[in-house]
Design a protein around this nucleic acid. Structure first.
Lengths: 345, 345
DNA sequence: TATCAACACGAAAACGTTTTCGTGACATGC
DNA sequence: GCATGTCACGAAAACGTTTTCGTGTTGATA
């Protein structure tokens, strides 16, 4: 049983293709008689218009392309689920491309989608792209009239809508919380400076300290090397953190820029005999699944990934459905939220 | 700068559309002169054929649809990453539909994709679909000539390729492991019977016990209600498990059919003063991210989600690229692997 | 010089829609 | 009886490709 088309219906009913099309779309040009005849036939055999043909005709696909660095990652899946939700409710499909943090995969991935398959992009750039600072592929697709919405890892110099997390403020709130809980010495576990979010969250740490009129001790700021993030180096990561905690024994509050750092720090601290949260409090960033199930459960700064995705999709679709793509670009900031758990109370 | 088409190139170079098309595809009909002229122009202005037009012409889209129950789920993201990897390497794109475990979303989601947008499906059915046992939408799409590959939650009565995890054997191996570690009383935390994987893994438990000539004590089998899985009921889940552990104090080995049950059981056991792994050993199922970072880290049965996705994509694309969709259907079983961590040693 | 390949290209159909513009039949108005 | 209008429908173009089938020009051959 092959797909039913307008042409086949027309042949079957001995009318023209145009008549069938119009009848199905309730055109007043068609008599009630024929209209009903056509509609009955169509429903009986379950006619569905071919989407590809429609896309070609209308020059829009009702599909949005999502490019993310990886999918095995809780934050990105939350964003995707938010995107999918509003996209679906507004009649759009979602097509996914993974860059695997690689610049060239990002470029080719976008190229294969930009040739008619989709109407616009929602994306978070690969780490390698951030390092190279090469954004020609973004600017080119925008020049071709295809709108982009960037999220999380947004690039200032690219002219498009953006949805970002307020990393600085989220970090500031976390550190302020630790201070309000009477922590006397608050440290931070962060990344090397070239990782944008690490830099921003460190900025938030400094801000909170400054607001509390506390001296910022550079030896309380531990910048962890990239390669320690890899799974096989987990035990090494723990040792580095443990050393840090021993050398800075006064630290009684710790802010970590991601879940892994926070959990590893908790393990290290417990091995050093510290009692969490009594004499050592920890807050992480990213409301991942680990925080909830850690022992003790971890207080974190939630980024509201799902709302972020919803907002990004809404921005893109709004722009797609304007007859004019030009209105000024927006940058929406998603508020973070401190989710308190056992590691601080 | 709008998209370049064959027609525009033709106008610009004052030749016909066919000539341009042939030149670009290195047809011998075209003289070297014109061919080079056309190609130079095309590369200069970065011509890319419109994919939608090609799809319409060729009646294939080089896109595969993936329908999964949810995306904020480690196992499914692993599968998707595997699918994406081989799909991409073979020139296919991936479009994602989420059913959110809902039957009707699954049906409409498949319908919107089946009308020309994709060449075939890879899917895992929604829980509600399993309950209703209504598979008409699957059979209909297969009847229309669109191939489906089912994974993980596969349905016997649907005639298509399948890639499944050997739940029974995985569970059997896990329980056998506990027994070999000298556990005298091994219990199981499982789901209600209507959850297929729960049923299968329980079967594996029974099998292992039988093979060891041990009596199966029904009170050692705890079937946890569905609604305890929800996040807000986490503490309730822990209490239920704690009660079970108190009533069955002899249990020194526990197999849990998922990560959450396993982690929660570990927490409960520790609160009851048990030492893991010395006097209480735990093994979970699903190689999620939680297991690695739990304290103590959790031994689990890995399902190799990524390989599963790769295999599913390979099966689908192989079938799509045969000129004949009919060859007999395959059911591939992905071997599980016991990943040993601290909760058993 | 008439015939015939070979060559290099163009016209047109096809994929499945939607939409504009005709057009023939019939009824109405004077 | 003639102009005009309405009704109900069909032809054709368009979206951007690929491909089949002409066809006009050239050069060689008999």
């Amino acid at each position: 049983m092959q797909k039913l088309t307008l042409k086949k219906i027309a042949q079957e009913l001995d009318v023209s293709i145009s008549t069938v099309s119009k009848a199905l779309r309730d055109s007043p040009e068609i008599s009630d008689d024929t209209r009903q005849k056509v509609k009955a036939f169509a429903t009986l055999y379950n006619y569905r218009p071919n989407k590809i043909a429609l896309s070609l005709k209308n020059r829009k696909t009702k599909t949005i392309g999502v490019i993310i660095p990886e999918i095995v990652h809780h934050f990105f899946t939350l964003v995707v689920s938010g995107i999918e939700e509003v996209a679906n409710s507004r009649g759009y499909n979602v097509i996914i491309g993974l860059s695997n943090e690689s610049f060239s995969k990002e470029v080719t991935g976008m190229e294969t989608l930009a040739n008619g398959s989709i109407d616009g992009f929602i994306m978070s750039v690969a780490r390698e792209t951030q390092l190279k600072k090469d954004y020609h592929h973004l600017n080119e697709t925008i020049d071709q009239g295809m709108p982009i919405v960037m999220f999380d890892r947004a690039i200032d110099s690219v002219a498009c809508d953006k949805v970002i997390v307020d990393d600085v403020e989220g970090a500031r709130k976390a550190v302020a919380k630790l201070l309000s809980l009477q922590c006397k010495n608050v440290g931070i576990l962060t990344t090397e400076d070239h990782v944008n979010v690490g830099k921003l969250r460190t900025k938030g740490y400094r801000k909170a300290m400054k607001e509390a009129n506390l001296e910022i001790r550079e030896d309380h700021i531990l910048k962890l090397a990239d390669d320690l993030n890899r799974e096989e180096n987990l035990s090494q990561l723990k040792e580095v953190i443990k050393t840090y905690l021993m050398e800075n024994a006064a630290i009684d509050g710790l802010f970590a820029v991601n879940e892994i750092y926070a959990l590893t720090a908790m393990k290290a601290a417990m091995q050093l005999g510290k009692d969490i949260p009594k004499d050592f409090k920890v807050i992480g960033f990213t409301d991942g699944v680990l925080s909830k199930y850690a022992t003790p459960s971890l207080t974190t700064v939630s980024q509201h990934g799902k709302q972020l995705g919803q907002k990004a999709a809404a921005l893109l679709i709004d722009r797609l459905e304007k007859d004019n793509f030009d209105p000024p670009f927006e940058t929406v900031v998603i508020e973070t939220e401190l989710v308190e758990r056992k590691s601080t109370s």
